[in-house]
Design a protein around this nucleic acid. Structure first.
Lengths: 165, 165
DNA sequence: ACTAATAGGTTCATAAAATAAACTCAATGA
DNA sequence: TCATTGAGTTTATTTTATGAACCTATTAGT
């Protein structure tokens, strides 16, 4: 399979990765979430090739993840801003941050601290169930394919994957 | 910046992406979470080049995300199993699924349905605060850098990014 | 008036990475 | 004997990424 074909797969992970799953896009999105907006700003921050940055921003705009806006005329200069669809990627970024904090933080602790203004505490991302609000572990969940009439379940001895049920 | 240098950045997103942020790794992890474990199984499922699959599995093993286990002798055959560190990527995968479901699902709904056994409902991933348990929006959070003594705040007109505070 | 600098790219030659196909090795089955 | 399976490795070709230079428009400095 070629990378381009991912977009036409019937899997939400595949379709998501077709947009944001290549080598630099998530780093670009990190910068946008941290407030960067101009081409030069992102390029200098990541120090990536301008070619790649231009191409990635283009795809993100095509997909509606960012909007390109002129912030001045004469000469016209542009900035990139996350759309609501782009803002919806916040949980993805926070999940990545949390895994990095868990497994790659040094003695001095995580390099970036996230603060939740509503409750007044520094926090980390937690995955919870949209229905009951409780934390979700992969061992407590099953998956089924919408296209399948009959469902299957993995044997209990074969843990470490999502259960089919 | 070259991709390899990401690992040495002082950012948890960068360090995470250095391990799982390339073009196929997250698809491989999806398969592992869905119960796939053998080389051939993953290769056929994704239809990716064997070269890339071998290299990716190697890095994942080096990083402790998967463990390579012999499941038979004569000839020795191996399977790959998520370690606890690998299982910790569940929130990342679920966040990707949810974004795909939100923005790329067709009329018939999401292709894969996730069921929370504890509460008995089909669910989607929700990001909540580790401290207060409430849902978190990027507009209600600020970030600060552990290395910085003085903190800064973005003006209110410049929304769409994490606030620094 | 000349020069440099800034912003937002594009073009182009080179280097790195991905792909597809073939190949290896060990064993099993027909 | 020949084909098949599993888990890769090797190799030739194609695709992507990189870095540097270039382009256009405008303002600032000397």
């Amino acid at each position: 399979m070629k990378w381009q074909e991912l977009a036409s797969q019937e899997c939400s992970i595949a379709r998501t990765l077709a947009v944001i799953g290549d080598r630099w896009t998530l780093m670009i999105l990190r910068d946008l979430f941290l407030g960067a907006s101009r081409f030069e700003e992102i390029q200098r921050s990541l120090n990536i090739s301008r070619t790649v940055l231009a191409e990635r921003l283009n795809l993100l705009e095509t997909e509606g993840v960012v909007r390109r806006l002129a912030y001045q005329q004469k000469p016209t200069r542009y900035k990139y801003k996350l759309t609501p669809k782009g803002i919806d990627l916040y949980p993805v970024l926070m999940a990545l941050v949390h895994w990095g904090d868990q497994h790659y933080a040094t003695e001095v602790g995580p390099p970036v601290i996230h603060h939740h203004q509503r409750c007044g505490h520094d926090f980390s991302a937690m995955l919870t169930c949209s229905e009951c609000g409780e934390p979700v572990s992969p061992y407590e969940t099953t998956v089924r394919f919408a296209s399948e009439a009959i469902t299957a379940r993995l044997p209990d001895t074969d843990r470490g994957g999502m259960n089919r049920g």
